[in-house]
Design a protein around this nucleic acid. Structure first.
Length: 116
DNA sequence: GACTTGACAATCC
DNA sequence: AGGATTGCCAAGT
């Protein structure tokens, strides 16, 4: 039962673990997957999730500054910020306020290194 | 199969 | 301090 799933699926699984009302960063996810430098790939995976029609709380994933860089990929221009506000997160000008307070860091996937 | 692209991040002027 | 550059990793062309 290898943990050698596609990088995509690992990203999806991680995103799904994000608690409601919390957010995380691309870098944090990448780090949790064992490749802290692969933040770009994480974003790429989320983008692919849209193409594949996978439903993810992708609005809870922002860049390291708490900026809603991916909002442009959502249906509406304000959908992402709207969803976050709905979860109790304050968003102003595409920037999450109290970013550190709502930031959620995923745990490292030991499965990864066991298989590596 | 090499080159480009991309929802990022850290470094270097 | 802030714009520009480089690094990383996987996918698409």
């Amino acid at each position: 039962m290898t943990a050698n799933k596609d990088f995509y699926e690992r990203v999806y699984a991680m995103v799904r673990k994000i608690p409601r009302g919390k957010v995380t960063t691309y870098g944090a996810i990448a780090n949790a997957l064992g490749s802290k430098q692969a933040a770009r790939t994480v974003g790429y995976a989320l983008n692919a999730s849209i193409t594949k029609g996978i439903d993810l709380p992708a609005h809870r994933v922002v860049n390291r500054k708490g900026l809603l860089t991916g909002k442009n990929h959502f249906l509406g221009a304000t959908l992402m910020a709207d969803l976050l506000r709905d979860e109790g997160i304050t968003v102003e000008n595409d920037q999450i306020k109290n970013f550190e307070e709502v930031l959620w860091i995923p745990e490292f996937e030991r499965d990864f290194e066991l298989n590596a």
